[in-house]
Computed example of a mutant assay.
Amino acid sequence: MFQSILHGLLLAFGLILPLGAQNVFVFNQGANHKKWSHVLPVVITAGLCDTLLILLAVLGVSLILISFPIIQTTLYIIGLIFLGYMSWSLWREKPASIEEHTPMSAKKQIGFALSVSLLNPHAIMDTIGVIGTSAALYTGTEKVLFTISVIFVSWLWFIILAILGRTVGRIDHSGKIILILNKVSSVIILIVAALILKNLIQLLS
């Protein structure tokens, strides 16, 4: 029983720690908002999306969905469009200390968090291929504990990222660091979009 919990914790940290579009976006929003409560929409949305993907992977539903080529193609196209738009928006995002600029609204945060979480084929493949496969090693209570451990790490990490981002935002009185972070975030998300485009071309060829 302890083994399944430890396995879930270590596996989740291993998957979520690498710098990806989702992590970058959560950190970025933490840095761009003056109050922690204003970052809750992106944290909650990202956490719920990951929880959904993890549950689908553990239950095996995602394997059925992803086995249809038309679903994969649609996912790639929609994900590519949203990530491209997100990259463009973050590139133009400026902190209020540099220029009068309203940080991303809750509605926009939720929309972007949904797209970067549910429309990122690489994240979905990782969830299905790694978490789904690992969950298959367990049954009953052990599988439940494994799943809870993975979900717990996911939520904890998003909260930590938002807090770290908020800390950077508070010490960056000039707004220059946040401006650079916005540009870096934009480039990272654009790279993810480029990888998706590559996979889409291979899928259609």
Rank of each mutant, 00 (worst) to 15 (best):
L161E: 03
V130Q: 05
L181V: 08
A57G: 03
G14P: 09
I159M: 04
S97V: 09
S117K: 08
Q72Y: 13
A21P: 08
I71M: 14
L83K: 11
M86Y: 06
I131G: 12
P95V: 03
S97G: 02
Y138C: 03
A123E: 06
G47C: 09
I180V: 13
I180R: 10
L65Y: 01
L119P: 03
I78M: 00
I163T: 11
G132L: 03
L118D: 02
L52G: 02
K35I: 10
I70F: 11
W36G: 11
L80A: 04
L119K: 00
A135T: 04
L56W: 01
K35F: 14
S134A: 14
I16W: 04
I178H: 08
I110M: 12
M1Y: 01
T73R: 07
P69E: 08
G140E: 05
R170N: 14
L55S: 04
I180Y: 02
F112M: 01
E93D: 15
I64Q: 12
G47E: 05
G84T: 07
L83P: 09
L19T: 01
E142M: 14
I124L: 01
L48Y: 00
V58N: 11
G129C: 01
S185W: 05
G20T: 08
T133V: 04
I77E: 00
P69N: 09
L75C: 03
